[in-house]
Amino acid sequence: MNSLLSQDVPLSWYLLLSAVLFSLGIAGFLIKRNLITVFMSIELMLNAVNLSFVTFAHQWHEVKGQIFVFFVMMVAAAEAAVGLAIIIAVFRARATLAVDRIDLMKL
């Protein structure tokens, strides 16, 4: 199965997909106004990186890449919990999730 995959789909495609996903994440992160969408963009970037980890791990027959993915997923889960909690708190306080209006850190 693994060898089949490696034969059918070249490595560069996976990497290209990862890069596209990552770029989409960045674009969403920069452009989107809704805090939840921004948050989802971050998740997207993380998963893009996960994809390249898995690809390389497969390529080099190394288990380290896989392990890293677990790490990332675990951190992402924690981050999602904290991040969502913050978003809820922000929404309660300001009654909005528009990123441009959440600017309390400005002097």
Binding site: V38, D100, D103
Partner: peptide
């Protein structure tokens, strides 16, 4: 320099990127 610290999340994100 204050302009840098806009408090605007997206501009921070842009600088980060």
């Amino acid at each position: 320099l204050q302009r840098w610290q806009s408090g605007n999340l997206r501009s921070y994100a842009a600088w980060l990127a």
